[in-house]
Design a binder for these strands. Sequence first.
DNA 1: TCCTCGGTACGACGAGTATCGAACAATAAC
DNA 2: GTTATTGTTCGATACTCGTCGTACCGAGGA
Lengths: 130, 130
Amino acid sequence: MTSTVGLSSLLIEADTTEEGSWAVDRLVPASVGLLSLPTILHALSDPVRLRIVSQLADGSERTCGSLDVPVAKSTCSHHFRVLREAGVVSQRVDGKCRFNRLRSDELEQRFPGLLAAVLRAYESSDPSRA
Amino acid sequence: MTSTVGLSSLLIEADTTEEGSWAVDRLVPASVGLLSLPTILHALSDPVRLRIVSQLADGSERTCGSLDVPVAKSTCSHHFRVLREAGVVSQRVDGKCRFNRLRSDELEQRFPGLLAAVLRAYESSDPSRA
DNA sequence: TCCTCGGTACGACGAGTATCGAACAATAAC
DNA sequence: GTTATTGTTCGATACTCGTCGTACCGAGGA
């Protein structure tokens, strides 16, 4: 796999070689070159996911439960899965928590200005979450 | 309605007052303030629609049939409807033709940089249509 | 008038999606 | 070991979407 860090921390990435592990269907696009624009736009076209992404926009790592989203936790987990599979977010497992972060750098490298424009648009269109 | 031009040309806009006319369900968001970010991102998240938008990016007016899209004409019409209802495109009827144009200015006013970033991302990710 | 042409409407089909509750798994705390 | 916490998975439901063929409509041209 791409990288593992010490202790109980594990970075889940697409180029993992552990076929059969539970992480297999949790893949994230391996390299920035594989990020698909339609897939990313679709991932960002849902209000709940936009809200999630907005709360990750400061670069912080957030757990599923620490987010302010008006859906059941299973639904939240689903949305994170969509974001991960689109390559918008990556997940790091640490103990019993899963820390999610925006893949800002990778997205910026592949699609310069895109995420920033979407986030700016979101902040300007939803004053309650600005 | 917002505006009509002379001759047989008719601009289809949302603030039309013709309840019951055939144009009623072909509405385009009335003002730039009503454009919805999730709706726009959804409209742009389909490969065919991205291709359409890309071909309108030079500011030209194009008819449905003059576009290079690999779908049936009814499907193309459907995609234009989605784009219109999201406010991404507006349509002008002239004779037996419907001319579509990108609402670049309105989008730029409401969500600065968004359309440009998407178009740039598209061109860079799909060399065959660049 | 009849026919063609550009486009839309409609119905159908298969696929995908957003949502939830409940069950499950893994870790941490007791 | 038992319990609590955190998040995923599964099944179910209702809805949406992309696609097509066909039928239809309005405008022009024969």
